[in-house]
Lab assay of single mutants.
Amino acid sequence: GKELVLALYDYQEKSPREVTMKKGDILTLLNSTNKDWWKVEVKATANDKTYERQGFVPAAYVKKL
């Protein structure tokens, strides 16, 4: 199945390749080969529509579930 990670801290994206997350968010882990930056998929809701974004977050800010 898919691997999930838990956001340990809030993170505000600093570039278009990154994604914003809030502490407590559960994210889908896409790639953890880089030890510093993990690629995740974030589900977000805006205007009653759910959309998914993929991007990088600092590996130290998340932990595998």
Rank of each mutant, 00 (worst) to 15 (best):
G1S: 13
G1Q: 13
G1L: 12
G1V: 14
K2V: 12
K2I: 13
E3R: 13
E3Y: 12
L4S: 07
V5H: 03
V5M: 04
L6E: 09
A7L: 02
L8Y: 03
L8E: 03
L8T: 04
Y9I: 08
Y9Q: 12
Y9F: 13
D10E: 05
D10Y: 04
Y11C: 04
Y11P: 01
Y11M: 00
Q12G: 06
Q12A: 10
E13H: 07
E13P: 15
E13R: 13
K14G: 07
K14P: 03
S15T: 11
S15W: 05
S15H: 10
P16L: 08
P16T: 09
P16N: 10
R17I: 11
E18D: 04
E18P: 03
V19E: 00
V19T: 05
V19N: 01
V19I: 14
V19W: 04
V19F: 08
M21K: 01
M21V: 09
K22L: 07
K22V: 08
K22Q: 08
K22F: 11
K23F: 04
K23Q: 09
G24H: 04
G24W: 06
G24F: 04
G24E: 02
D25V: 04
D25W: 11
D25S: 06
T28A: 09
T28W: 14
T28I: 15
L29S: 00
L29T: 00
L29P: 00
L29I: 04
L29F: 02
L30Y: 04
L30D: 01
L30R: 04
N31F: 07
N31R: 06
N31W: 07
S32L: 04
S32H: 06
S32K: 07
T33H: 10
T33Q: 12
T33K: 11
N34Q: 08
N34L: 08
N34S: 08
N34F: 08
D36C: 14
D36R: 14
W37C: 04
W37P: 02
W37A: 02
W38L: 03
V40Q: 01
V40Y: 01
V40R: 00
E41S: 14
E41C: 14
V42F: 08
V42H: 15
K43V: 14
K43A: 11
K43N: 11
K43L: 14
A44I: 15
A44M: 15
A44E: 14
A44Q: 12
T45W: 13
T45D: 10
T45A: 10
A46M: 14
A46R: 13
N47K: 09
N47M: 11
D48V: 06
D48S: 11
D48A: 09
D48C: 14
D48I: 06
K49W: 10
T50I: 13
T50Y: 11
T50W: 10
Y51Q: 09
Y51I: 12
Y51R: 09
Y51S: 10
Y51G: 10
E52R: 15
E52M: 15
R53K: 11
Q54L: 06
Q54W: 07
Q54N: 07
G55Q: 01
V57K: 00
P58R: 04
P58A: 04
A59G: 03
A59V: 05
A59N: 02
A59P: 04
A60E: 10
A60W: 09
A60K: 15
Y61W: 06
Y61F: 12
Y61P: 00
K64M: 11
K64E: 06
K64G: 05
K64D: 04
L65V: 11
L65G: 02
L65P: 02
